[in-house]
Design a protein around this nucleic acid. Structure first.
Lengths: 345, 345
DNA sequence: AAAGCGTACTAAATCGTTTTACTAAAACGC
DNA sequence: GCGTTTTAGTAAAACGATTTAGTACGCTTT
């Protein structure tokens, strides 16, 4: 392990001062002769000089690193999101430090502090549901407040703070509209944690569409849970005992849970129960009966988020956000109820 | 955005020198009186001092950051791996910089350089298949060679370099054994890129078990591809035209592809074709006919890898690696061929 | 020939830590 | 009371860059 080559070595090799080397290598060699420039480039090349990022960060006060906090990297949605974020940040010259917080409020707080200590230039934050609960949200706000760098909420957010997120209400509205158009009136819904804007707003959108058809969501048709498989399973069990003909799951993974339990009970999708989801995970198309769902515009979401955070870090004016809309992907998980379909046309 | 509190501020507040503050805060306050210590802790607390990691890194020559390079974060296996790595590294005081290289050799090389410039303390590397191909492997070796920090290959590796990886041969051996015990003799196989040790060794294990029963893998029973859905789909199409009764897919995702195409052709698993996979993704249990597969010991893999890399970074002696074994998870994707089963008992 | 002005380059401060080598004062042995 | 050791603390160098404020030199002007 030989000592790393420093700018000083290059300077000595080229027979100039470190100042000049720094200027030239950073393209600010305004008043440097062509011959000197060449000598410096040659020396740098010869010694295989690579600048020390740490030293640079110390003096410049910026690290070109972004902290990315997600609640669950194994969730397909977040994996895809992280992938897109990384790609786009890399293009802008930023690396990302990943923190996977396993839906834990404690870890959220801890990693925010840790990242701050690393002098990252900004944080892209999708907090755990736990962090957004009434008893914890204060702590989260406090941690964000202490930060000396911009923080952008992604997907899940705290009201009043900068964020980039899907138009969740519209998303659920479309889905409900589709169900209604297929003749369903007794509709069940399985949500995620209600402190998440995604669940709250999706529920709003669903209710809106329902009320436009003079329908209402009865108490017993609402099943609150997590965005996970098990919630879907329990929901399936529950709805089997009701008279709902269709259920909208607020995430595909929940829909998978419904499929699973239904099959275990000897029931079938969509013959016995229609199911729709939100996300459009890769697996949704592979199911026995491919799932009708809303495709999340993950790439655009990441695009907008990166653009916005970069603007915030540069102190630029924030450009208006495009409305991020999910798109209905119709497959085979919804039964057409007779007699009703015509009516809607 | 107020200036960050430095050690100097703490020193002033406590009325001592920065040296003393540094010693005390780092628990090396051997010759410092109790009262002074307390003053310093109070001052630090009061000013909400957090040390500047960048400055510390510069002088100490270590960053406590690990570069983690994966070929595809959206692949469930790698997502799970990264999750486990992050958790364990965090416990050891390391943060991870994630690089998702989208199975690109060019990106592999680029990110190794980038990470080196960041003075990371070590690299956990799962290269793209492309990087391991004969024409690219030289470049990869060169990039690794230039590194002044330890690099540990994970899952995929270059022969002769430190690595942690599954016992792939044994894994495929078990799977084949299971198939044979269920009476299958005409067995097809769909592999990943053959330059990957995972595919090469799995094939070896499969062949070994076959030959033990006096069987051989005929040329036409081998379908080489990627670890992806589409390869599975194409393989299904292919094997439908042969007389194989069972196919072992070298990854679950390929098995999903087989399921998909089979259904599109009006065929069923396992009635028309038995299928097994390797990985045990969460989705494998959810399929119409749950998939029999080998469960990868991802947590142990991550454990061993982190331990080993930490040892390498500390210059410690390397403890022997436990053999990492996958475990058969029997579900419903393999048909029992009559007449043969008894014979095996 | 003195003043002014580019041009080409550099010395030195700075960023926030850690750590080595030192000092001043107190305590101790005798 | 003199030398020695211990205690409690500090000054200053170092890490490897960037950047401000120069300097030295030659060339025009007037």
């Amino acid at each position: 392990m030989s000592k790393r080559v420093t700018i000083k070595d290059v300077a000595t090799e080229a027979g100039v001062s470190v100042t000049t080397v720094s200027f030239v290598l950073n393209g600010k060699g305004g008043g440097v002769s062509q011959s000197t420039k060449e000598r410096i480039f040659c020396a740098a090349e010869k010694l295989r000089y690579t600048p020390n990022h740490t030293a640079r960060s110390l003096v410049m006060g910026r690290t070109n690193m972004i902290g990315v906090i997600v609640p669950s990297i194994t969730n397909t949605f977040f994996a895809e999101l992280v992938r897109n974020l990384q790609r786009r940040f890399a293009k802008q010259g930023y690396d990302i430090i990943l923190s996977n917080n396993e839906e834990s409020a404690r870890k959220d707080l801890k990693s925010i502090d840790l990242l701050a200590g690393r002098n990252i230039d900004g944080i892209m934050l999708t907090p755990s549901a736990e962090s957004l609960s009434p008893e914890n949200i204060g702590l989260l706000k406090e941690a964000i407040g202490k930060l000396s760098v911009p923080c952008l909420f992604l997907d899940r957010y705290v009201h009043g703070y900068p964020h980039v997120s899907l138009d969740n209400s519209a998303s659920a509205y479309s889905l409900t509209d589709y169900l209604v158009s297929r003749g369903h009136t007794k509709i069940g819904v399985v949500t995620g944690p209600m402190q998440l804007n995604s669940s709250a707003n999706r529920l709003k959108g669903l209710r809106k569409r329902l009320s436009e058809s003079g329908l209402t969501l009865c108490e017993s048709c609402l099943f609150e849970g997590q965005y996970d498989l098990e919630t879907g399973e329990r929901a399936a069990e529950y709805f089997l005992q009701t008279d709902v003909t269709a259920v909208v799951a607020f995430s595909d993974i929940q829909a998978y849970g419904i499929y699973k339990r239904l099959k275990e009970c000897g029931k079938r999708v969509p013959e016995d129960l229609s199911v729709v989801g939100i996300d459009d995970n890769v697996y949704s198309a592979l199911l026995d009966r491919p799932l009708t769902t809303m495709r999340q515009p993950i790439a655009e979401l990441a695009d907008a988020a990166v653009m916005r955070l970069v603007q915030m870090m540069n102190g630029e004016e924030l450009s208006p956000l495009p409305k991020m809309q999910a798109q209905l992907v119709e497959r085979e998980s919804v039964k057409l109820l007779h007699g009703k379909a015509e009516e809607e046309e």
